[in-house]
Amino acid sequence: MIEVDNLTKRYGEVAAVKGVSFTAQPGQVTGFLGPNGAGKTTTMRMLTGYMPPTSGSAKVAGFDVFDQSMQVRQRVGYLAESVPLYRDMTARGYLMYVGEIRGVRNVGRRADEVLDRVGLIDRAHSRIRTLSKGMRQRVGLAQALLHNPPVLILDEPTIGLDPYQVLELRSLVRDLGRDHTLLFSTHILSEAEQVCDKVVIINQGEITAQGSPAELRHDMARGGRILMRVQSDPEAAAELVRELPGVESAVVDPVMDGGIVITPSGVNSDPRTVIADTIIGKGIKLVELRPLAVNLEEIFLEFTRQQAVNEIAAEAAEQASADAETESA
């Protein structure tokens, strides 16, 4: 159980995290989603007791992260983003070291168990510097699991892994989520959608949305905007739709790759059937017509749009050109 209440971290005048509040339930994987620099790592560091919060409070497994830091630390397993390890130690030696500091008495057996769990038992006596990136990630994970903590905090565990390793790790995280409170950060939207029972979206140090992926989809769908694609001449189609009853606006959005974003006028109205009839009736080839936010990527974009629409647009444009370049190359 993680309860975060109005957590804030400032570096001088700059606030990295501004009044974040959310909860993570036991037996669930909670995804912490946000672009790079959104404050994910800072928040996690505060939750693990590494970094004291400037203000606000957070309770992990029922203990305050500032006033009862030691109790919190005993109950948290933490995999830091860069997976810092002692390169000159063996995998098992490292686990023994951490276990001794933690005061795990049957540390030898536990080290073997968690190494077995993450599939590294045959490399237990290899020095960490000889292990691959994926293996090191698993050593870090083994370290977090060593004392069987009720709460696991994993900071970007899939970063830098090859696709196969990413798949393995995701399934491990899902598996661990069943009997732990698991907070897991990522900047990859699809990953959060696949793995998480709950998603917390953070941007520029503030939470913009939270809920299960389904809830978020539903929230967006309900009274949300509609995306329409036509085969050609989207401007003309938008012009047509704009005239329809129950439609407040319809614009061609470059971010949506030439899709037309339609805003209904009523909260509970769904003008999709009317739109479809009209467009098809005019002989325009309809390619797609659906509520705008149906996958997490769009939800994310949608929620962050208000704060930084210009930035996102610029980034998207950049991204598009970069993609084009790679494609052409």
Binding site: Y50, V76, G103
Partner: peptide, 9 residues
């Protein structure tokens, strides 16, 4: 590695 150590009890 200081980060990991400082999250140990």
């Amino acid at each position: 590695t200081l980060e990991v150590l400082m999250t140990l009890p």
